[in-house]
């Protein structure tokens, strides 16, 4: 049975805007994205809203629903009481283009800085062999749909924009971990994880894990194991001693983070 739901939607562009009140029809089985589409069709034709698959797999409809980073297409209306007012805002960490659409190019810039997969040059194409247990860890991280909810909720950049240059965010530290744990990758990414991508800024509050719609254990399976690897590389004198007496294999070398070319000041 349908009812009229109260919505407060942030409307505006270039950062300036305000919450506007609407009453929108809700039918059984609908999700927040359905209701926003009805709002767009019936009352606010100029409402800007990014969406694509409506199935929780494209990562487009990221927004904040009652202050919590969520996918609009994966948030059922049935979890809210019919009398409740839903507050819908854009992701707070990224600049607003218009209404609920944000500019997430920060993430693409960070992605480009990560040195790519570095296989053993002596292995020819077609000769790679990997066992399933060797790639299970990396495959968990490959479930990421790049909705950037983890990036949005991480307080390191959400509350401190000044850290954006030094901190890549959980999604891209997870990418570093994915390559670091890859059985056929020969590069040692521990130094750049700490120095260039800001792993030390993470204080493991697990907010990234909490919001991940793919239920990836970002903190426990990527960030903490990466912190432990960095501790082994930089802070463990026993490991250092082991490497000196050749009990441990030599590092294959650290790739350099790909820094973007300096922008033309003009």
């Amino acid at each position: 049975m349908g009812y009229k739901a109260k919505f407060r939607v942030w409307r505006g562009d270039a950062g300036t805007g305000a919450l506007q009140d609407y009453e929108v029809e809700v039918n059984e089985g609908e999700v927040v994205l359905d209701v926003l589409h009805r709002l767009q069709a019936t009352q606010a034709n100029d409402l800007a809203l990014r969406w694509n698959c409506k199935a929780g797999k494209c990562g487009s409809c990221s927004m904040e629903i009652n202050g919590r980073p969520r996918l609009g297409c994966m948030t059922r209306m049935s979890v809210f009481s019919p009398s409740e007012t839903l507050t819908i805002t854009p992701m707070r960490t990224f600049p607003v283009i218009r209404d609920l659409v944000t500019d997430v190019s920060f993430n693409y810039e960070k992605a480009r800085q990560i040195p790519s997969f570095t296989p053993d040059a002596s292995v020819k194409p077609g000769e790679f062999r990997m066992m399933q247990q060797d790639v299970n860890r990396s495959q968990e991280f490959r479930k990421c749909i790049e909705c950037y909810l983890c990036q949005n909720t991480c307080h390191v950049i959400r509350d401190h924009a000044e850290n954006e240059a030094a901190f890549a965010g959980p999604r891209f530290l997870m990418r570093v971990a994915e390559l670091e744990m890859h059985p056929a990758d020969t590069a040692d990414r521990r130094d750049i994880a700490q120095e260039d991508f800001g792993l030390g800024y993470c204080n493991i509050t697990k907010c990234c894990t909490e919001v991940c719609p793919e239920h990836i254990k970002i903190t426990d399976n990527a960030l903490i194991p990466m912190k432990e690897r960095v501790a082994g590389r930089k802070y463990d004198p026993l490991v250092w001693l082991g490497s000196k007496i050749s009990r441990r294999p030599k590092s294959e070398g650290t790739p350099v983070a790909v820094r973007p070319a300096a922008k033309d000041a003009t």
């Binding site: 307080h155 030390g200 993470c202 204080n203």
Partner: peptide
């Protein structure tokens, strides 16, 4: 960090600190 230092108190709740350097 959440309970005492409020960095942050809860997820998506603005923390009160002017700057943040984490565990660096």
């Amino acid at each position: 960090y959440k309970a005492f230092w409020r960095a942050p108190t809860a997820c998506a709740v603005r923390e009160p600190h002017a700057s943040y350097s984490g565990e660096t």
